[in-house]
Amino acid sequence: MYWSSLGDFLAMGGHAGFVWPSFALALVVLLGLGWSSRIAMKAAEREHAEAKREARADA
């Protein structure tokens, strides 16, 4: 472990205002993209199943 205290860790040598927003942004963007991709996939699965059902009903 590099840090001697939690306060030191959070302070980031006085540059907390630059380090923490960088990590927060990456976390938010990557989680958000993963979440929205999952939603898009679920929606596509529903749409595909529905189109298949309709095509079968027509036939």
Binding site: A44, H48, E54
Partner: peptide, 24 residues
Amino acid sequence: VWILSLRVRAEILNRQARILRFSA
């Protein structure tokens, strides 16, 4: 690769659904 696998699945299923609806 993880996100690509989710998004490509969505794209392929959407395109197949579109074709199914068109031919119906």
